[in-house]
Simulated assay, not measured.
Amino acid sequence: MSCNAVSRRGRGRSAAAISAFLLAFFISAPAFAICQVIADGAFGPARVYKAAVETGSVRIRYIGHSTFEIETPGGIRIATDYNDQIRPALPPTVATMNGAHSTHYSLMPDPDIQHLLPGWNPDGTPVDYDLTVGDVRIRNIQTNIRGWDGGSRRLGNSIFVFEVGDLCIAHLGHLHHQLTEEDLLRLGQIDVVFAAVDNSTTLRLESLMKVLNDIRPAMVIPMHFHFPGALQAFAARAASDGYEISMDTDSEHVVSRTNLPAQRTVHIMLPRS
């Protein structure tokens, strides 16, 4: 038997083992810029409900579906795909939204949110953000999206990029197509990616893996895996592409430059909700 055949058989067994493990776990468990260092500034009172994040680190909480809460050392909290159904415990400083459907945007945002950033314009014209809030720079790259009629809605989705210190984090939103060279150039070097892995209403697995291999982040955090078997299928596919698979039994994870994995890793988090 050839070495290639042995390797393929080993990868197949590994994928099957990952799929079985994930299934058991979820049954048993209830931009043109590379990351830039942002100068320290005067921060207002931080609404922190755990120990403050250390300098150089970012705390990520998985709230559910496509909503994460990102907390910076300066006490800025960002909620991604903020909506009326799944929310962080406290109003975030910044809320980003996408126009796919109601679990990705809010019609009744909390009035205490200081910066509300819809990732689309209803009339299809561009929305371009590049703002600094405390110790985080936030920018976006718009992509097209499929409408309910099967047609294309121009600029209906935004990839939001969060630059904190020397870390770059990207939330792909409700991505429906592969990225262009211009998109990748604007993204720059990304360390952590939040990626929808439903294999249905966003990207199919083959297209998603192409996107991730083009971005080349150190860590991929899956989201939007509400369809049965979607997370298991993604983990198995990622493992066959050489990603390490890491399970987290908690809904939060602290990331820093020093603890980024040396090998490309899929880090699976348990949604709070």
Score class of each variant (00 low, 15 high):
A95E: 05
C168L: 02
R137T: 12
A15C: 12
T258V: 10
A20C: 09
R61K: 14
R9Q: 14
L212H: 06
A89R: 06
T67M: 10
M219S: 14
E244M: 11
D110C: 02
S152C: 01
R237Y: 14
T55I: 05
T143K: 02
L175F: 12
T202D: 09
R11I: 11
R264M: 07
E54C: 10
D241A: 07
A218M: 06
D135M: 08
A239T: 08
E69R: 13
F194L: 08
I86A: 08
S106D: 01
D110Q: 05
S106H: 05
S246D: 07
Q142F: 02
C168S: 15
I70C: 07
P217N: 09
E181C: 05
E71H: 11
V127E: 03
V192F: 05
F162P: 09
I215W: 03
T201E: 10
I221V: 15
G12T: 13
H171S: 11
C35I: 01
C3A: 15
T67N: 11
V254N: 08
Q36S: 15
D84I: 01
M223L: 13
A15V: 13
N144G: 07
I27F: 03
M219F: 03
F26D: 10
E54S: 11
S19W: 08
H101I: 00
V136R: 03
A89C: 02
E71R: 12
M247S: 04
H224R: 12
D110L: 04
L185H: 14
F162V: 00
Q263P: 02
A236K: 13
D198N: 14
M219Y: 02
I113Q: 07
G124P: 00
T103C: 06
T93I: 02
A235M: 06
Y82D: 04
L208K: 15
L131F: 05
L179Q: 08
T202K: 08
H253I: 06
I63H: 08
S240D: 10
G150E: 06
A95P: 01
P118R: 09
E181P: 06
W148Q: 06
F162R: 02
M269N: 01
Q232K: 13
